[in-house]
Design a protein around this nucleic acid. Structure first.
Lengths: 197, 197
DNA sequence: GGACTGACAGATATTGAAATCTGTCATCTG
DNA sequence: CAGATGACAGATTTCAATATCTGTCAGTCC
């Protein structure tokens, strides 16, 4: 009945899962739904992903990695002033999270249930991002723009201090018009703390 | 059967409600339970509090106010160095929240459901605390220890930046042994940002 | 008469039976 | 033989009946 039977790959399953999640949300999306969307039996999905949790994790990882790469581009742009880079990097992080929460609330919700069930993956993602910040701060210390004893520690502090603007738990305040002003004020305060005195 | 019939006051009801909440938690505590604990009918409770939500709110307000007063003492101690005062104030806030979350998890949970349903009360509490921080920063500006354009804005930024150490949503990380080091590093970064350069 | 009670209506929560889902695996198909 | 299937057991979710709770109020009791 089917025309060309395309091979069932992990990639195709992830694509379909994302679509199902977008439509049904994490609470109601089942692997049976995913299989139905692909026109295969759910047993076939289990050939590629050992559990439903693994599938959810893979979807979230892809999603997390996309953010990470965009930011890495900013962080790695060594031609630019470290201070401007850090400012942009933090703004890009805030903007990315805010946009994703607004555009795909259901997918975003999936990511939030993930945070609770799979600390490891999220932990790695945060370590990755913190590492990017540390890189920018190191460049700033090298150029004399910043003066701090340990860039890694400061990076952690900066990341945690800005939690309100990237932690999913705060997604509701991102819609508040005051959020942008608050963000600016906080970033300036942090930059003053990093600068050489 | 009862010995001396004591008058039923709002205060006594709050006391009993706190006890019921501590034992049953916010999800299972009913006003019938509260009435039973006091040996009265639940109709009597409604004479003092118009709704269950109002009762919950009153309990939480008392609870919030106690924290507020302790901190106000530190903030108002104008004899001391503003920098040390801010450091202590933030540490006291963190410590108070951490202790409450650990000692009375059920009461703490009550406060968390309150945050979601009654933004106004929590908003006032936060405005109060932010005001205390602003006071300390103003003193610092006056003494020349700090150099910032607008103490109120900086106070907001400081309060938001330290959210990880006082926002109930983060109660799980407060148990992490790394939390104290993270807190110290963040406070130092913020203080450097406030200091005159 | 003012504080309290308890019966009541409508809203909410609990419960247990039925439906659905997850994850496995013997079997089939190309 | 590699990949897919669908029947199955146990876990989880859904749903509707039942029980409990919230909030009101006419009436009781000092």
């Amino acid at each position: 009945m089917a025309a060309t039977t395309v091979t069932l790959t992990a990639e195709r399953i992830l694509e379909a899962t994302e679509e199902v999640l977008r439509r049904h949300g994490p609470a109601k999306a089942t692997v049976v739904d995913v299989a139905r969307a692909l026109g295969v039996s759910h047993g076939s999905v289990y050939r590629h992903f050992r559990t439903k949790a693994a599938l959810r994790e893979a979807v979230s990882k892809r999603w997390l990695d996309r953010t990470s790469e965009t930011l890495a581009d900013i962080a790695a742009d060594t031609g630019r002033d470290p201070e401007a880079r850090l400012r942009d990097w933090l703004a890009a992080l805030f903007e990315a999270k805010r946009r994703k929460a607004g555009d795909d609330p259901e997918l975003f919700a999936t990511y939030m249930v993930l945070s609770e069930e799979s600390g490891a993956l999220v932990g790695e993602h945060i370590a990755d991002l913190t590492g990017q910040v540390a890189g920018i701060i190191e460049a700033g210390v090298a150029s004399g723009a910043f003066a701090v004893p340990d860039p890694a520690t400061e990076a952690r502090a900066v990341f945690q201090a800005t939690g309100r603007f990237h932690d999913p738990a705060y997604r509701d305040v991102w819609r508040d018009p005051e959020a942008d002003g608050d963000f600016e004020a906080l970033v300036e305060l942090l930059l003053r703390g990093l600068r050489a005195s």
